[in-house]
Structures are given as C-alpha cells and as structure tokens.
Design a protein around this nucleic acid. Sequence first.
DNA 1: ACCTGAACACCGTTCAAGT
DNA 2: ACCTGAACACCGTTCAAGT
Lengths: 236, 236
Amino acid sequence: MAAKHSGSAGDVWLRRPARAAREAPPLSRDRIVREAVALLDEEGAGRLTMRRLAERLGTGSTTLYWHVKTKDDVLDLALDAIFAAVEIPRPGAQDWRAGVTALISGWRAVLLEHPWSAALLGRPMLGPNVLARSEFLYATLVGAGVTEPHLTAAAYGLSNYVIGSALMQATWTAQEEDAPRQAAREFLRDNRDRYPVLATHGPLTGDSDWDTSFALGLAWLLDGIGSDEQRTERAP
Amino acid sequence: MAAKHSGSAGDVWLRRPARAAREAPPLSRDRIVREAVALLDEEGAGRLTMRRLAERLGTGSTTLYWHVKTKDDVLDLALDAIFAAVEIPRPGAQDWRAGVTALISGWRAVLLEHPWSAALLGRPMLGPNVLARSEFLYATLVGAGVTEPHLTAAAYGLSNYVIGSALMQATWTAQEEDAPRQAAREFLRDNRDRYPVLATHGPLTGDSDWDTSFALGLAWLLDGIGSDEQRTERAP
DNA sequence: ACCTGAACACCGTTCAAGT
DNA sequence: ACCTGAACACCGTTCAAGT
C-alpha cells in the first residue's frame, strides 16, 4: 500500500525525475507570460484560463499562483510583453513627424498581430515596454516644440486614435470570419429605407482599406499637431 | 406532506399570487435590458452575472434564457440601449462641422456616463440606436461633400477617436479611485532617470483636463476632414 | 523556495418538467 | 407561452501539506 511517491529501497531508478527533462525548463514568470501570449494568439482571450494555461505548462493551475498574483496579472504582463516588438526609433534620427509615424505604425502593427490585445486596452498600461515607448513619444513631441495643452492632447490623441482603430479593425476582421460582416451588409441592404446613406456609402459597402483609412486620419492629426507647434514656435 | 405548491381545499387565499403585484411587471426582454444597465452602472461589468441579474428581477437565472439567447446578447442589448440618450441633430439645421461635433460629443458623454461601456466596444455595434447615429454621421459627411477614400477615413477616424478617448479616460478615472493614478505618479517620479520626459511632462504630472484634450484632437480631425472636402469641392 | 491536491464559492447554459 | 429546478461542465483562488 505504498503511497504514490513514497520511496522504497532501490526504486530511485524506477521513479521518473521529479521534473528535469520532462517538461524541460522550470516554471517561471517569464515562461508563464510567453505561454499566455502563445495561448492568446492561438485561441483568443475567451479561452485563456488558469487551468488551461497551466496544462500547457505541464503543471497544476494552482502552481501558477506562486509566480503570479492573479489572472489579471497574467493579462497585464502579456499585454506589455507584446510591445517589446515595437521598435523605438533612434531619437533625433529623423524629423519628429517621421519618428512619431514610425512609432504609431509599429504600435498599430502589434495590436493587429495580436487581435486579443485590443480588447484588453481598457486597463492601465504601465509595463516597462509600454512606458519606454510613451517616453519616446513625449520626448519627440516636446523636442518638436509642442507645449501644453497641445502636448497632452497630441499624445492622448495619437494613442486614442491607434487604440480605437485597432479595436475597430480587430472587431470586424476577426479570424477570417466573413460571416458577421456579410450578415451586416445584408441587413443594411434589406433596411436601406431606414439607413439610406449607410447602405450605399457605409463602411461595409466597398471593401474598405483599413491601411489607407488609418493613414489619412493619422495625417490629419499630425497636420493639426504640426500647425499648433509652428504657431507656438513663432509666437514671441 | 403536501408539496410546496400543491393545492388543498380553501388555501387559495393563503397562497401568494403566482406573480401579480409581487415583483410588479412581468419579465420581458426590455425589463431585462433596463435592469442590466442599472446593474452595470451600479457595480460594473465584472459583477454582471446572469444569476445576479435574475435575482434583481425576482426570478431564477435560467428563466432569463427564455427572453435572451446568451449573456453576450444582454451585453449587446445594454450597449445599444444607452445610445438612445444621444440626441441626433436635425439634419441640415447647422453646418456639417457643428452637427458632427454635437453628435460626437453626445456619443462621448454617453460612454463616460456608463464607464463599463467603453470596455465593451470591441464587439460589432449593429443595434438600431447605434445605426441611426451612424447614419446621421455618414449623411452629414456626404452632405458636406466628403468623398472616398476620405469619407471612410473620416467616419472611422471620428469613431475611433471617441472610442479610444472614452476608453482611456474611463480607465484612468475609475470611480474616484485616485490610488492607481497616485501610484503611477509616484512610480514615474521614482524612475525619472529612466523616463525623464514622462516624469516631468507626462499626462499624470499636471491634472490633465480631459475635456480640452478631447476638444483639441477633435478639432484637428475636423480641420483635416474639412480641408480635404474643400480640395475635393474645388477640383474639376 | 517551489509545487501539489483538495476544496470553496462561484460561473453560463441546457433541459426535462411544470403551469 | 412562459417559468422552475436540478444538473453539467466549467471557472479563479485559497490553503494546508508536501519536497
């Protein structure tokens, strides 16, 4: 009646190593976050569960709580982790407009590559990767001569615009499923008397090009920021 | 050993009415949605549960499924419901810029009044209230002479901007809790060597005025949309 | 210092059954 | 047509216990 792991003489060789080269590397916060990102990429936010995450890591779900305080922590860490992929332009290597455009585009690319991320943006983003990129944004704007209240408006405006755009695009291009988009199109066509303009000019009528839409709006914002900056520079 | 609701002679007067003036109005999809909005307003999205919602309505949770297909349905319906409060300007009563500004401002006001809503924007919004307001937006822009690809860019840009702004503001002004904001401020101060610009010019340094920030960014977008419109009008 | 298992207090949803 | 109760297959998280 030996219990599961009780030792009896000479059975060392029969027992499999406590862990070792079974699931390979030991558990760590870093490994948890990497696996969480992989899980989110493959299956979406709805399927991220402490139990399922633990299973992929070869442990019980309760073990995760030694490395991480809550599931929300995992989400915060995963969200910050993906921003490591956004390259920070070398400061001053180009004019402010090119630098900001590069950063914002990289930001957007990351959000679209990990569609689950857009829905998580409603939480404070204070991870080191996000902060480093915000620092560059502010530094570039300040360097361009943008001052309050335009500075805050510019930084927020640009961030809000990428976030909103990514959220909208991720919503409507969810994993190849053209079904909801198709259904919406049909609904508008069937109700063209109630929504005449939407039915004929709406975003679902042509195959709207997300990239050029985004670029146009970004240019408008940059124009505005630039004109205020010039005005400020010229003032005594 | 009479079971709970079995009748025995003369006990009609003793039994409370099956429903009647107990919880007042009968259950209906409309009542469910209204109660859901109230629950969300009072306690936030994290506490909306089919069981808790049913309790507030005086029924069992499983009863809700007769009127509604899933919990997601409840969320979709609640989200659309709050947009009924956004007044649609009378078409042509003012110039396009004033009309658009009024609509977008009303949109923003609703999102901020119901802070839980911002986090739910990552789902297709095809309810009648939202559609009616989108129709006005498109109609106004088309009436102003905005044409593709600027039309889609303008409509999306404005929507994305409000959504992003409301999401950001709702994130950072969550129910009077100044604690996280204060903690973030301290963190940046303590790490001013790593984030020099953020620490001195960042959004958390002064008490940023959300309203003027929003207004500035909106003006930049409208300027951009307007300039493109003029250019188009003038072209042969 | 790290990992495990059992357990608690919940979830959304289905379905046979009642009126 | 509408409502109920029991039940299923999950959740996040805690905690005493192991090594």
